[in-house]
Write a protein that binds this DNA or RNA. Structure first.
Length: 1058
RNA sequence: GGGCCCGUAGCUUAGCUAGGUGGAGCGCACGGCUGAUAACCGUGAGGCCCUGAGUUCGAAUCUCAGCGGGCCCA
């Protein structure tokens, strides 16, 4: 049987209980099992990095996923939803290095790579377990028992297989490229791993001496003095104008400088020259015949050997000197210029950020220390034109915050350039939520994408499966573990991580051995293969063929360049098509100021803290309802309280009838909706219809991924329709003590609405939904599915939908609200009846609404009568004035609209109204002519009779006639008395069915008479079996109180009698 | 510096696609209800609709240029 529930909504208790139920009954597995064979829905979880703790953004992410999956499941979908974990890579290496007190790769090597890997693995697995619990606290249902983990061999194979595809399709390339390099981590890092932060660097202007021209220099500018030893060339813009200038310094010394014409003043100012003379001008393209020598050729032997010239480059801008220092080993653009012109890629800097032997006297020096030394050397040789510092955005390693450098190194690349066109075509086939996430944002990103450097010079990652022969250089890419075992003859189970896999040698055709290249994959390559790795491809192919590609993925907007992209790239390589059919891009969580949450700002909100205070369902409802999924989410704690309140109201609504149902032993299994149909009132049919409409609204929202609209519809239904309206309407019906079909009808309707509501909130507030379901359904039907989440999503029952009734009720509600408003204006509280309410209906529907729902209206407005005027007619007791409607006047009169509006205000309202009513138009004089006024252009405002107040409702203008009669006064005072006695019963904590003895002394003969008219009614309402009312009454009792009722003093004493 | 998104009451937001006197909730003030009661309801005050220009008879809405915030890139 249905049971009574606690007074207060207690999320903590509910969620504990529900989680226990889910665990005991293996609810998740049962639900997924239940849908086997249904329509397929392949979801791929974007794997969070195993940092050990979730934050609000990751919580939001999983809540969105969970809600959509629960909704899909209830709608019959057979779901694949393995949770995923991103477990390799630098962040964990850096954490482990920190824990072990390491500072460089050498420390790792001496500790032993095998030991180090084990630590990383252990660390990642522990973090994964911690985070799993945190995600489960949110109520997120994914396949937590069998997640995909990037560190598993089966997963590694998916990456290997993909690499082999790249090789076979000639999309894999090894080559020297300039990459972002972290000199601390000693590895290449991806563009996406570079964080830009403000940083102070040197800013120097350097003079390179031109060969064959006495005392002449080309001037360049740089913020990286340490790259001067690597200088190979200077670039100028072909079409800029350059000047040769004779510059004179303070000591009167002269020299000739070459700089862009428009920057001459700027350069001379920097060099503190006192005078100058332009010797001649030329275009950039005329400078290419010049060559120069390195000012530090004496320190770097290679520089002395090298020929330095001037080349053309379009990317040169008219800033600083207009001549750009080119070091192809240390810059992406520089590299391109070098490659185009066949220049040497000179890179005398090692992976640790120290100069190599090639740097001559600088060898062994760290580049950060070198800045000072190089500047000093330039200065000594008279080649430093100016020295200063600059604050600019500069790239840093996202993990260790070390400023990055650019290095030309041997790396492995996926040739995205060759795939770009196909990728763009595929993007257009994908369904994007919102549309612009794909058509604008992602498209822009892919259009600008470069080849993807997938190699890293680290330890904790998927080893790149390329074996190379030292002797003949032949290369082989291994696609699977089995292939590796077969080719190597190693039959034991091999661990595919470093260093173990590094020991495996393959036979080469030339008779020598092939050894694995040392690199590991960029972690983005790990997650890129998730959509097939999660299906255990290539080990198994059956599941892959059945499910792939993914029906749906959803991640934050940062993943545009991240996972949305890396997956697409890898999938194009592997299968030549997009790995997902639809993508929801969601926003970021911001703090209450709209700033991003970050540790350094100290504004990070932990989901666990929110759950502790409000519960997971409140957190869920908050993040889902606050903004559109793709908008950023401001986290404002007061709004959480608001959501919590809404849920509490739902709890109260649900709780309200339970004591009565329990008392009456209401058994829904014995009372069908069909059987109570003859006793349904209009309001019952209305709430049933509204509930159906709610389902339709949620369906519509879910189909567009507008989860916020789904939640707002639900909240509105709970607050407006259920709590503020239906429950108010039916309260008296639940108090009836007898066996009453009218009461039974209410029970049945409430029951159905509650069960439906529980199902509709189930995807979003799964705990509360479960709690309601267990009581309402499982307690009544023991054979019902063990969990609400195994139930089917409610289908809209068109037989229950009555849109006209909904429209009528809307109008009635509007009238009731307006009546409240009017009552306040005229100073008559609701406890006092009014003799009549007059409505001038705006249309026939409004008139019908009143006729149809008159009893509801009279009841809720506490009115003795409802009077309708004809449609559009005003109440005949009114005067009025004319009010022009600019919205109607504007389109007709355009420029004269202002004059027309003025003229209408001036016009005789009575005459105007009469004319419009009779002739449907009126010729109005305006300054400089006349205007033909139509009825829709004017509204009329009334003036009111005594003790009547009016208010506008959506159904039309209402008038509340608050004139008193003896009858009304008697009822009013009577209810005042009842209200006080009830209040005192409450104060005495009496049970609802306790009887009392009451003594009521009223110090006013007239009011006393009015009250005595209804003496028996008072006794009945207050359960008084002894009651004395009079002018002079002894009011002693358990509780005695003085009251002031509308200026009349009363004293009431009551005592319990049984 | 570039691409995309966001900017409406003290706070959170609807309205913007398809231009016609800007709606809610919270908070505040006042009032009501009292068999959901540590709950609930009504009314009121509170808006240069980020700024400026343009299109139009008319712009929160369309266009352009700024400013602020977010994501990404350089």
């Amino acid at each position: 049987m249905i049971e009574e529930i606690t007074n207060q909504y207690d999320p903590k208790k509910i969620e504990e209980k529900v989680h226990a139920l889910w665990n005991e009954t293996s609810a998740y597995s049962k639900v997924r099992e239940h849908r086997k064979g249904g329509k397929r829905f392949f979801f791929v979880d974007g794997p969070p990095y195993t940092t050990g703790h979730i934050h609000l953004g990751t919580a939001w992410n999983k809540i969105i996923k969970d809600s959509i999956l629960r909704y899909r499941s209830m709608n019959g979908f057979d779901i694949v939803d393995r949770a995923g974990w991103d477990m390799h890579g630098l962040p964990i290496e850096v954490k482990v290095e920190g824990a072990l007190g390491f500072t460089s790769k050498k420390d790792i090597e001496s500790y032993g790579v095998g030991n180090f890997i084990e630590k990383c693995k252990e660390f990642a697995l522990n973090q994964k377990d911690d985070m799993t619990e945190q995600f489960q606290d949110l109520g997120a249902w994914l396949d937590w028992n069998d997640p995909y983990m990037t560190l598993r061999d089966e997963y590694i194979e998916a990456a290997w297989w993909t690499m082999k595809q790249a090789q076979e399709k000639s999309l894999l390339e090894q080559g020297k490229r300039v990459v972002n390099w972290c000199p601390r981590c000693e590895t290449a890092i991806a563009d996406s791993e570079v964080e830009y932060e403000e940083r102070k660097d040197p800013s120097i202007f350097v003079k390179f001496p031109i060969i064959g021209e006495e005392n002449t220099f080309v001037v360049i500018w740089t913020t990286t003095p340490w790259t001067i030893p690597s200088n190979v060339a200077v670039a100028v813009h072909p079409s800029f104008e350059y000047s040769k200038v004779k510059a004179v310094n303070a000591e009167g010394k002269e020299e000739t400088l070459i700089v862009a014409s428009e920057l001459v003043e700027n350069v001379l100012k920097k060099g503190r020259y006192v005078d100058y003379e332009v010797l001649g001008t030329m275009l950039g393209e005329d400078l290419t015949s010049l060559s120069y020598e390195s000012p530090i050729a004496d320190k770097v032997p290679k520089q002395a050997e090298m020929k330095h010239s001037i080349y053309l480059a379009d990317y040169v801008t008219a800033e600083n000197t207009g001549c750009v220092h080119i070091a192809p080993g240390h810059g992406m653009d520089d590299f391109e210029v070098g490659k185009k012109n066949g220049l040497p890629i000179f890179c005398p800097v090692g992976p640790d950020g120290r100069y190599t032997e090639e740097a001559g006297e600088y060898a062994g020096m760290h580049i950060r220390e070198a800045n000072k030394v190089v500047i000093e050397d330039l200065n000594e040789r008279g080649n430093l034109l100016s020295e200063g510092t600059i604050e600019h955005r500069y790239g840093h390693c996202w993990r260790c915050k070390t400023p990055i450098i650019y290095l030309a190194t041997e790396q492995w690349f996926i040739k995205i350039g060759e795939l770009k066109e196909q990728m763009l075509e595929e993007i257009a086939q994908v369904k994007w939520y919102p549309e612009w996430a794909g058509s604008a944002r992602f498209k822009d990103w892919v259009e600008g994408a470069r080849d993807w450097c997938v190699s890293r010079q680290r330890y904790w990652g998927i080893p790149i499966p390329v074996w190379k022969c030292k002797s003949c250089g032949k290369m082989h890419v291994v696609g699977t573990k089995k292939e590796l075992q077969e080719m190597s003859g190693v039959s034991d189970d091999v661990e595919l991580h470093r260093p173990y896999v590094d020991d495996i040698l393959l036979d080469c055709e030339c008779g020598c051995k092939m050894k694995r290249v040392e690199d590991v994959f960029d972690v983005w390559f790990d997650s890129a293969v998730a959509s097939w790795a999660t299906l255990r491809f290539p080990q198994q192919t059956e599941e892959f063929e059945k499910w792939w590609p993914a029906d749906f993925i959803t991640e934050g907007q940062d993943q545009t360049r991240g996972w949305f992209y890396s997956q697409l790239g890898a999938s194009m390589v592997a299968f030549g098509k997009a790995p997902y059919k639809s993508v929801l891009m969601h926003g970021f969580t911001l703090d209450s100021e709209g700033k991003k949450m970050s540790k350094s700002l100290g504004n990070v909100v932990a989901p666990g803290d929110v759950i502790e205070q409000f519960g997971a369902d409140t957190l869920r409802s908050f993040v889902l309802s606050s903004s559109a999924p793709w908008d950023d989410l401001k986290f404002v704690s007061s709004e959480l309280g608001n959501i919590n309140r809404t849920i509490n109201i739902l709890w109260n609504v649900y709780r309200f009838p339970l004591p009565y149902m329990v008392l009456d032993k209401f058994d829904p299994s014995k009372v069908s909706l069909e059987s109570v149909k003859p006793h349904l009132r209009k309001e019952d049919r209305w709430i049933l219809s509204r509930a159906q409409s709610l389902v339709a609204e949620v369906n519509d929202a879910m189909s567009k991924c507008t989860l916020h609209r789904a939640l707002r519809s639900i909240n509105e239904f709970v607050l407006e329709d259920l709590s503020r309206w239906y429950i108010q309407l039916i309260r008296p019906r639940t108090w009836v003590e007898a066996d009453d079909p009218d009461k039974l009808a209410v029970y049945r309707v409430l029951y159905d609405v509650f069960v439906l509501t529980a199902k509709v909130i189930a995807p979003f507030m799964p705990h509360l939904a479960e709690e309601m379901y267990q009581n309402l359904v499982r307690n009544v039907y023991p054979d019902a599915p063990v969990t609400i989440h195994m139930n089917d999503w409610p289908q809209v029952d068109e037989g229950l939908v009555d849109k006209e009734l909904e429209a009528h009720m809307d109008m009635v509600r509007s009238i009731v609200e307006s009546a409240s408003n009017a009552r306040q204006k005229v100073g008559r509280k609701l406890r006092w009846p009014v003799s009549r309410i007059v409505l001038s209906p705006v249309n026939q529907q409004a008139a019908d609404a009143v006729t149809n729902l008159k009893s509801v209206l009279m009841d809720q407005t506490n009115s003795k009568d409802i009077v309708l005027t004809g449609v559009g007619e005003s109440w005949d007791e009114l005067g009025f004035e004319a009010n022009p409607d600019p919205g109607k006047i504007g389109p007709v009169f355009k420029g004269d609209a202002g004059k027309v509006i003025g003229a209408i205000k001036q016009a005789d309202a009575m005459q105007l109204k009469k004319a419009l009513a009779l002739e449907d138009q009126f010729e109005l004089e305006i300054p400089g002519g006349t205007a033909m006024i139509k009825p829709e252009m004017v509204n009329f405002i009334e003036t009111l009779p005594e003790m009547v107040a009016s208010a506008q409702s959506s159904a039309g203008i209402i008038y509340v006639d608050a004139n008193l009669t003896r009858e009304i006064e008697s009822e009013g005072y009577t209810r005042e008395v009842i209200r006080r006695v009830q209040d005192m019963r409450k104060e005495l904590n009496l049970a609802v069915d306790d009887n009392i003895k009451s003594h009521i002394q009223i110090n006013d003969q007239r009011v006393l008479d009015l009250v005595l008219d209804r003496e028996q009614f008072i006794a009945k309402e207050t359960r008084a079996n002894v009651q004395v009312i009079g002018l002079d009454v002894d009011t002693a009792g358990s509780l005695e109180k003085d009251w002031d009722v509308e200026g009349i003093s009363m004293t009431i004493g009551i005592s319990k009698t049984n």
